[in-house]
Amino acid sequence: MKPFEVTNEPLEPARYMEYVTHSEAGAVTLFAGTVREWTNGKRTMYLEYEAYVPMAEKKLAEIGVEIKQKWPGSRVAIVHRIGALSISDIAVVIAVSSPHRKAAYEANEYAIEQIKKVVPIWKKEMWEDGEEWIGDQSYKPGSE
């Protein structure tokens, strides 16, 4: 298993929790992003994810490095699934361990926020009556 990975396979959160857990850690936060059925009154049938895989994995690993610098003593695993995902499937798993809980919460949230800004992964919402690629048109990575 790779700690920073984009994969077509279903994600198993427990593996990543295990990966970051160690004797110096006093807290582990485990985040799972799941496929939501209803968004702004529109019913999603399923989601289609795609990625620029080599770059996305590189960016995930960079987020891991940033987290270790910002929250010393932390360990991180971040994985994202691509392909067709059904309602309630897990799209992303972020596991962070740290000596104390505050850092584990903060670092975990930092990871998902960075994913949504800089990691080249896209989702398309498939509705009963149409489909659309989702993306914040106002944000350009690297413009901060």
Partner: peptide, 26 residues
């Protein structure tokens, strides 16, 4: 080559150039 660049950056033969629409992972 898998790194975000500015528009002024030069591109050389052999480079991989990816167009990245606004991302929406997570």
């Amino acid at each position: 080559n898998e790194e975000y660049v500015l528009e002024t950056e030069s591109v050389k033969p052999g480079d991989h150039v990816a167009f990245i629409p606004p991302v929406s992972g997570g």
